[in-house]
Amino acid sequence: MVTEAEKQRLLEREAATIPRGDVYIVEERCKGCGLCIAFCPKKVLVESDRINEKGYHPPELVEKPPVDVCINCGFCERICPDFAIFVKEKKVNNSEQ
């Protein structure tokens, strides 16, 4: 039986070995189609309440560290039909890990 504390440690170790990403958006291009939200493998995107200048709701981030975070897989930027959302590798310093 794995204790909660051990489980947390394992998760944190896993989180430290996978890449992390920062998510960017050119917000006025977003048409709120929701594809990035639906196809994000880590489910870190949700529709926001905000409205962009064309009247659409762009996505926002709901990361739940240490595991449910952007892993810089780049699928959102490939599935986005509007050249709006993209990711860049996060520079993580060791002290944060």
Partner: peptide, 10 residues
């Protein structure tokens, strides 16, 4: 949490 705003796309 809002996503980081960008004005350019790669």
């Amino acid at each position: 949490m809002p996503i980081i705003k960008a004005d350019k796309y790669p």
